[in-house]
């Protein structure tokens, strides 16, 4: 098992994630899933709050998958910048469209 966490900008995919790391990632994702279902089932009266928490938890889960399972954490930082640009572009679509519809 080799860990080169100190060198995340390594050009080739030298980093090998351990089985244990993948297992911990899964455990975190399952925990977040239980949490989001619980908020939805038991917090049904807090409507807008449950929408916000569901989306927040989904975003955290997505980042965990991208960073650990998709190795984004160990890739060249260009990948993280590209992802940020794409996500910001999409958020811009959402915001502009919402403003348009909310002002009708």
């Amino acid at each position: 098992m080799e860990h080169k966490n100190e060198q995340p900008n390594e050009a080739q995919g030298h980093h090998i994630s351990s089985y244990k790391e993948h297992f911990s990632t899964l455990a975190a994702l399952l925990l977040l899933t239980v949490l989001t279902v619980a908020v939805s089932v038991f917090g049904a009266d807090l409507r807008s709050l449950s929408v916000a928490t569901a989306l927040l938890i989904a975003t955290i889960k997505a980042l965990v998958v991208a960073y650990y399972f998709m190795h984004l954490k160990y890739e060249h930082k260009l990948y993280r910048w590209l992802l940020l640009v794409v996500v910001l572009l999409f958020v811009l679509f959402l915001v502009v469209t919402s403003i348009e519809y909310l002002n009708r």
């Binding site: 989001t36 939805s40 989904a58």
Partner: peptide
């Protein structure tokens, strides 16, 4: 999953 099933 949350958008279709959970957001009540």
């Amino acid at each position: 999953f949350p958008l279709l099933y959970l957001i009540h």
